[in-house]
């Protein structure tokens, strides 16, 4: 279980996002940290090369000629 998000860290993250929240909203936001972390854990896994972000050019036949 990760430590509960501290006020200073939360304030920093919100400032980065440019959001000004009420104290009640900040407290509520802390309560969903675990659920969000669980989501992140599902996508933070080793990936193969086919999962790289990449441009995919697909010229039409007449353009490729």
């Amino acid at each position: 279980m990760p430590p509960m998000l501290g006020d200073a860290t939360l304030d920093y993250l919100l400032a980065q996002a440019g959001l000004e929240l009420t104290d009640a909203q900040k407290q509520e936001l802390k309560t969903i940290q675990d659920a969000l972390d669980a989501m992140k854990a599902r996508v933070r896994q080793p990936r193969g090369p086919l999962a790289e972000l990449a441009h995919g050019f697909a010229p039409k036949p007449e353009e490729a000629a």
């Binding site: 939360l10 993250l13 919100l14 980065q16 996002a17 959001l19 929240l21 909203q25 936001l29 969903i32 940290q33 969000l36 992140k40 599902r42 996508v43 933070r44 896994q45 990936r47 086919l50 999962a51 790289e52 972000l53």
Partner: peptide, 19 residues
């Protein structure tokens, strides 16, 4: 508000998982 908790790395990992 949720977006404050999702980093650029988190987003890229999600897009990689999508592929």
């Amino acid at each position: 508000m949720l977006a404050a908790f999702v980093s650029g790395v988190d987003y890229v990992q999600a897009v990689r998982r999508r592929r």
